[in-house]
């Protein structure tokens, strides 16, 4: 254990985040275009679209570092739209930063708006004005899972780059880079396991690697599956199976636990329920019925309904489906 302690001194997703565009794995065309922008020390507004863990944030930080050099931190503002998604963040924080003068000789600053698709429709509309009004001193890099979730007028003002999920080779290259540097051993089935777990999401891959490395110096498939299974929250799955068994009161206790102890929101819980819905053995038409109920519940939560009552109603539907299975 003592030996391991000296090894770990940072969160690896950050420690091994590519420092410049050249270190970025995969996305050759995108990196090439961005490098050209960096050389010219000028960028248009950019929209990075693609799934999680493919390098959107990394590319945004890397290009800022290359353009601004020493002063990149002063000229680069990162905001996560999913944490503050209302119109106020656009009118407040974003506008305030957008209109301050850039530091140094580049002539503009960069605002990186991560998960921009989380912005409400109002906020996106307000953003469109900001994009135009301050474009002489401020460039935006927006990131989103799908470009279509960003309103047309903003899309049309941005150069859109599509990030595809990373292929297995890219993931393996990157993981090997880390294991070599950390002086840890990973078996080839371990590498396969990581690519399987990651499914093209590099952040997931690196986190899985670090969790495994925190308990074992030699990493193989077994260690990886064991640690990821331990670290993976199973509470929602547990909640579902309890409801299906028809034990509604216990299911509700578990639901309350997710709210109270785990601090999950109704939205978080419904996300996880949706991820789990294909893992349970129920007839297809019931599954689809439940998915429809889930969608309705989700919509009601967005509209501001009470999380607990709505989720209880959904759980009661699961209990009902469970009952029909038992008879």
């Amino acid at each position: 254990m003592i030996l391991l302690l000296s090894l770990m001194n940072d969160i690896w997703v950050e420690k091994y985040r590519p420092k410049n565009l050249a270190e970025v794995v995969g996305h050759h065309e995108i990196v090439e275009r961005l490098t050209a922008y960096a050389k010219a020390k000028n960028i248009p507004h950019l929209l990075f679209a693609g799934p999680a863990g493919t390098g959107k944030t990394t590319c945004a930080i890397a290009i800022a570092k290359e353009i601004f050099g020493e002063t990149w931190k002063q000229n680069f503002q990162e905001l996560n739209a999913s944490d503050e998604r209302g119109i106020n963040v656009v009118r407040g924080k974003i506008k305030d930063f957008a209109r301050t003068a850039p530091l140094g000789d580049v002539g503009f600053k960069i605002i990186f708006l991560d998960e921009a698709d989380a912005l409400t429709a109002d906020a996106q509309a307000a953003l469109r004005r900001t994009l135009e009004k301050y474009s002489h001193i401020c460039r935006f890099i927006l990131s989103a899972n799908y470009s279509s979730r960003i309103i047309e007028p903003i899309q049309s003002r941005c150069a859109v780059f599509r990030f595809k999920p990373l292929n297995e080779e890219d993931v393996k290259t990157y993981i090997k880079r880390i294991t070599e540097n950390e002086n840890i051993e990973i078996t080839s089935d371990g590498l396969d396991a990581i690519t399987f777990i990651a499914r093209g999401d590099l952040r997931k891959a690196v986190n899985a690697l670090q969790v495994a490395a925190s308990v074992s110096k030699k990493i193989d498939a077994e260690t990886l599956y064991m640690t990821t299974a331990t670290a993976k929250p199973e509470e929602v799955k547990d909640l579902l199976s309890t409801a299906l068994k028809g034990d509604f009161l216990t299911a509700r206790r578990k639901l309350d636990d997710l709210f109270i102890t785990y601090g999950l929101s109704g939205e978080d819980i419904i996300n996880q329920l949706h991820q789990t819905i294909y893992d349970i053995a129920i007839p297809e038409e019931k599954r689809m019925m439940l998915i429809e109920k889930m969608g309705e519940t989700d919509f009601r939560l967005i509209e501001g309904a009470n999380e607990r009552i709505q989720l209880e109603a959904l759980l009661a539907q699961f209990a009902l489906v469970g009952k029909t299975l038992r008879f």
Binding site: M8, I11, V13, E14, R17, A52, T57, I61, E78, N80, A81, S82, D83, D114, E115, A118, R203, N207, A208, Q210, V211, S214, V215, T227, T230, A231, K232, P233, G263, L264, D268
Partner: peptide, 18 residues
């Protein structure tokens, strides 16, 4: 880690383990 707190919340168990 340059992620939303929502995503960080999902990483919680992993970090706790580390």
């Amino acid at each position: 880690c340059h992620v939303s707190s929502k995503k960080a919340n999902q990483m919680f168990n992993e970090l706790q383990m580390i």
